[in-house]
Nucleic acid binder design. Sequence first.
DNA 1: CCATGCGCTGAC
DNA 2: GTCAGCGCATGG
Length: 383
Amino acid sequence: MPTKYELERSRRIEQNKALLAKLGVEQYKPPKSAAAVAAANKATAGANGKPKAAAGRKRKAQVKPEDDYSDASGDEEEEDEDDDDDDVDDGKVRKPKRKKQKPAVDVPAGVRRSSRNAGRTVDYNKERRGGQPKPVVPIERYAGDAEEGGRGGRKADRSALGKRYGSVPGVEVGSWWKMRMDCRLAGIHLPLVAGISGCADGAYSVALSGGYEDDVDLGDGFVFTGSGGRDLKGTKDKPKNLRTAPQSSDQSFENHFNRALKKSVETRKPVRVVRGYKLGSPYAPVEGYRYDGLYTVEKAWMEKGMNKEGYLVCKFAFKVHADNMPSAHSLADMVLQRLPGQPPLPYRDRDAEKAEAEPTEEKDENATDEEESANEEDASDDA
DNA sequence: CCATGCGCTGAC
DNA sequence: GTCAGCGCATGG
């Protein structure tokens, strides 16, 4: 029998779903299982000759710079940012003016930051089985990793591109990164911990990483909880320095980030959305952080949060942006055309995943060229 | 300067 | 698997 808490949670979820429905957001759910979609993609690849795989780091920018959402607010020019002069020239990006920007690559001696140590080896085959897009941003070592002789692996820093509204030139919807720092360097979502990025004029991006039980994710729209109201300091006698903590007071729109999101409701400017692996939703990536394109913030309000004391939280309803709506295309488009830069929103059918866990045969995905595809390791399965 | 933040890591 | 606690970037 469900506990009282669970009942309340369900009630809120239904409530939020109803709200999203009123905003025109329908649950996005591909009629086929992820495996079927993957298979269809394979077929498509055969038909088209070759799957359009991102060619590693050198791939050309396929997303039109700016104006991807020109209709959004009528005001075309994105002002600020001397824009084009520091245009992304694919491989090389001019150093940001603020040279202090060095990517946090300095790893204290003795501390190794290899994926091996992280205990989370990336299993690309698994990613594909789950219908996940291949990483268009290669997973690289942090410069400073002793084994590679230091700065050899330094990544381009495009974070300067993040303080703008809309898409980031050269970053396709569906791109994903293993860590927040990489997401930052790509210019998609700058904060390394915070879930909201923005300024007084509106929000640039948000990261969905779970953390709020009553958040709802329907794919083409979702309800997002604001930030603040947490006691990050611990107690007096036991001072902490936490990045996250339970709700301990009301949130409010005084909060800088909540305010930014509220402002976005007025401006209608698109907000970049990143889904993290910790998000408990069918649309959450298996691993890392995935850029899911542009959404608009349709509504902002306050309500009691799912915390014992009933502290107020700020809530926001997001709806996928028309120009970037992955599921706006018919399934046929989705699996037969794989529109460049607008892949379908990945959907995890956990039941199918489980069924597929039985390794009947190596479902050799579309053999997308790519260097790291040489991952002969078989799925050791998750934890 | 101070305060904040839906990460990340090594240690169990 | 869980847990504690830190750098860093950002904004005021």
